[in-house]
């Protein structure tokens, strides 16, 4: 992986994570993160849309004049979302029924038009597609972590109904975390999404702060050795 792509990956997965830092696409994130499988389904659909829309928009960026770029971008994104929606309807029909309105609503997910504006409109096709992929994966990652937290706390099991996505042989994938679990309904209900996301963001900030302190300490140590070297 060249440094350029490594930077794109780091941006998408961590530094400018669409869900944790940019706080875009909150509505689907909150609404469908009640189970891991729902979260994974919507996350991958969003990722597919992001890759395709970033690549297409980057390909036509020279032809579109600045004045009309936003409506053009929206039309491109809407066309791609329609394709994704029809594909899911055909191959993952059950999951499509559960996710319902949130699949067509990917059109309105701010992170997609956001990446089109911020990245695809200024960069070549390959980099734009990579940006879409990593932004989408970063979003999916947060969705899945939040989904696992909510499903695990709320029902005491994770990966229930994996067959909706992976076919019949995935029926045994469900992992029961606690036997005889009473169920903690709050985690499955909308407040669980807000509180859970708050904790994930706090966790990310904690890690960032820890990394920054470690880096600072490392630099201080290095400068100290530089200072002491001549005298020693």
């Amino acid at each position: 992986m060249t440094p350029e792509y490594r930077k794109i990956a780091h941006n998408g997965l961590w530094k400018n994570n669409q869900a944790l830092v940019a706080l875009l696409g909150m509505c689907p994130l909150m609404a469908v993160s009640n189970t891991v499988i729902n979260a994974l389904g919507l996350g991958l659909a969003t990722t597919a849309t992001l890759v395709a829309s970033n690549a297409l928009i980057s390909a036509i960026r020279e032809q579109v004049s600045d004045e009309v770029r936003l409506p053009v971008f929206v039309l491109v994104i809407a066309a791609i979302v329609t394709v994704v929606e029809l594909t899911m309807n055909a191959f993952l029909h059950e999951l499509y029924l559960i996710l319902g309105i949130f699949i067509p609503l990917i059109v309105t997910n701010c992170s997609i038009i956001g990446r089109a504006e911020a990245f695809a409109a200024k960069n070549p096709v390959k980099q734009s597609a990579a940006d879409g992929l990593f932004m989408g994966l970063g979003f999916t990652l947060v969705l899945v972590v939040l989904g696992a937290m909510r499903e695990g706390l709320g029902t005491g099991a994770v990966f229930a109904h994996a067959e909706l996505m992976f076919g019949d042989y995935a029926k045994t994938w469900a992992i029961t975390l606690f036997d005889d679990y009473e169920g903690f309904l709050l985690a499955v209900l909308p407040p669980g999404a807000f509180i859970g996301l708050g904790f994930i963001i706090a966790g990310k900030n904690l890690i960032d702060g820890w990394l920054a302190r470690r880096k600072k300490a490392g630099i201080a140590m290095m400068s100290m050795t530089r200072h002491t070297a001549p005298t020693g």
Binding site: E182, G183, F184, L185, L186, L189
Partner: peptide
């Protein structure tokens, strides 16, 4: 309220 909506 947390208890009420979680364990009705």
């Amino acid at each position: 309220v947390v208890l009420l909506i979680s364990f009705p």
